[in-house]
């Protein structure tokens, strides 16, 4: 019989707290960049939009992950991992490909990636366990 993962729940819990910090600081950094840096075309608007799309995707992802873990169901965990795809794309984009990568951007997104990676791997492991256990 498969059991919920404490490690996954810990990463989900602290990941949620970090996400609040990440979002608020990223918001302020984008305001700073919009005022001070010469963005070409509409790149700034596009990159800022990602941050708000993140706001739509990240809470359901964490909720589904936590719910799947606690209710020992693989379905929500798979859904959480699918949503993690966008979040992963966003963090990688912010680290590698955004128009101006500030040092603060870099470290904030690296930390987020660490949380995301741990959550993703643990979710995958748990989901497989739950499927075998079922």
């Amino acid at each position: 019989m498969a059991a919920p993962s404490l490690a996954l729940e810990v990463f989900l819990y602290f990941g949620k707290l970090w996400d609040v910090v990440f979002w608020l600081i990223s918001f302020m950094v984008f305001c700073y960049k919009g005022y001070n840096l010469p963005y070409p075309g509409n790149a700034y608007e596009m990159e800022f939009t990602y941050l708000f799309m993140y706001l739509l995707v990240e809470p359901p992802r964490l909720f589904l992950g936590s719910q799947g873990n606690k209710s020992v169901r693989a379905g929500p965990l798979w859904a959480s991992m699918v949503l993690a795809g966008f979040v992963l794309f966003m963090h990688v984009y912010y680290i590698v490909a955004q128009t101006f990568v500030l040092r603060v951007d870099y470290w904030m997104n690296v930390i987020s990636l660490v949380f995301l990676s741990a959550q993703f791997l643990l979710s995958g492991t748990q989901a497989l366990d739950f499927m075998r256990g079922a």
Partner: peptide, 15 residues
């Protein structure tokens, strides 16, 4: 300033 400096840029044009 060290946190807000540009670590990398991918801007094709700067003006």
């Amino acid at each position: 300033s060290q946190q807000l400096c540009i670590k990398d840029d991918n801007s094709a044009s700067l003006g």
